[in-house]
Amino acid sequence: MTPSRVAFAAILGKDLRSELRTLQSLPAMALFAVTAFIIFRFGLDRTSLSGSLASGVLWATLLFAAVLGINRLFVAEREEGGFDAIRLAPIDRSVLFAAKAAALIVYLVALELIAVPIFAVFFLDSAAALGPLVLVLVLTDLGLAAVGTLISSMAVNSRARDLLVPLVLLPLVVPLMIAATGATEPLMIVGGPGYHRFGTWLMVLGLYDLIFALIGWAVFDFLLED
């Protein structure tokens, strides 16, 4: 049995390497986010945003951009026989869940490194919100990665995979988005970052991350059996 740490590093490294070489997901996610900002600029007819509008635009865009990456997360495994290889390999199957979730976190962080500064340049009056926003982003990424990996691994083995990911994922992440926007809104309010109920929302995010990470870890075995 290969130690889980080694297997984790190998799968994560493989994923990041293949993404770097093919650039299948990340450029599309980033491009989508920037285009969505432009559409919001004209759809809302605002040149600067604050408060709930700012946090709504930011999170709606990040979520839909994330769906693009989540859709493609297991496509290579399915098309190139990666699932069979994992089943044959002498490793704990839950490692695949952890490694794929870690890869998704890397994609999300890369997306946010591009999209959030552009959002700030486009719409925000001051960059003061970005510091505490990092905490919200990190916690939300963890939750998105846990749920996204779980749903993506189920959807990829179905006939309607591109359809199923958004369909099933969006209701599941509603609590995550409630907490993320709830924490972000006071940060982007006019007159500097506010912290109304900031800690409470971070705790909700953390609880969500924990629950779905545990569920994903527990049920992932059943998704790989055949």
Partner: peptide
């Protein structure tokens, strides 16, 4: 099997969702 995984995930989601909303 997948439907069961869905049912388990969604079942755990119910109380979490009520709390957040």
């Amino acid at each position: 099997r997948y439907a069961s995984v869905f049912a388990v995930t969604a079942g755990a989601f119910v109380p979490l969702n009520f709390m957040a909303v």
